[in-house]
Design a binder for these strands. Sequence first.
DNA 1: TGTAATTCCTCTAGTCACTAGAGCTTCAAG
DNA 2: CTTGAAGCTCTAGTGACTAGAGGAATTACA
Lengths: 138, 138
Amino acid sequence: MFSIGDLSRRTGVKVPTIRYYEQMGLVAAPERSEGNQRRYSRQELERLAFIRHARDLGFAVEDIRALIDLSGHPEQPCGHADKIAQEQLVSVREKIAQLKRLETELERIATCCDGKTVGDCYVIRALSDHALCAEEHV
Amino acid sequence: MFSIGDLSRRTGVKVPTIRYYEQMGLVAAPERSEGNQRRYSRQELERLAFIRHARDLGFAVEDIRALIDLSGHPEQPCGHADKIAQEQLVSVREKIAQLKRLETELERIATCCDGKTVGDCYVIRALSDHALCAEEHV
DNA sequence: TGTAATTCCTCTAGTCACTAGAGCTTCAAG
DNA sequence: CTTGAAGCTCTAGTGACTAGAGGAATTACA
């Protein structure tokens, strides 16, 4: 049996976050000790590790809930799980593309400032005047 | 003079967001019409465009506040503005690197599933078992 | 066995950057 | 002069936590 602190150390999920997940229904309410403290089994440790892993990968809590529901029905076709992962991949790729555009513009903005005062600072001017942007963003 | 709707159309910032920025002190409270409606000058339009642009670039509202303060003191050295932009660039690059790692793993997870049911779905297994990850993430 | 340090409990409220909705008033076009 | 769009204020909700108060339980060590 693990205390909530054990679980936290083993999964890297912070203690208040574990309690929050319980409140949200992502993890089931575990057994309690005599003194009302949470006591977790290995199964619950694994579920939390699953959640941690999926959150690291950027899955929304709702997605995770769906994946957990699916994993509780191993006889069902897995097209849905696949779809969730595919959508997440698309969303990650979009974010990368977007951030790369920002990187390009920030490079221009943050590296060309040779003014001595704010009055002729390129950073300020670039932000004030969208026309200075090399390409459209957002 | 522009109404709040004009401002919204010209800057692409939604009407409730403009009011929110006013509440946060990012834009000053403008003049009002006889009937208590907001009336903006061209200067205020430009400030909002500045904010929009900086938000698009991922600057936090606090950063923007600092940049606005700076732009109000054009005689000061611009090192601070530069620093804010540099830090933003670093942060964007970190996010890109992170997302690329996720992309790699999601590609593996989302494209290898040839199981027919959840029971042997690669997506579910990969999320359950961190050991299946090719490389460390987060 | 005593005690001190650590961990745990619940609860409320705060974070960020908005977004939604209710219920009302004002404005602009025809 | 009417009508419908756009404006007003206010409260509350979003997602995914995080912080803090005030107290109880557990653990380590003497």
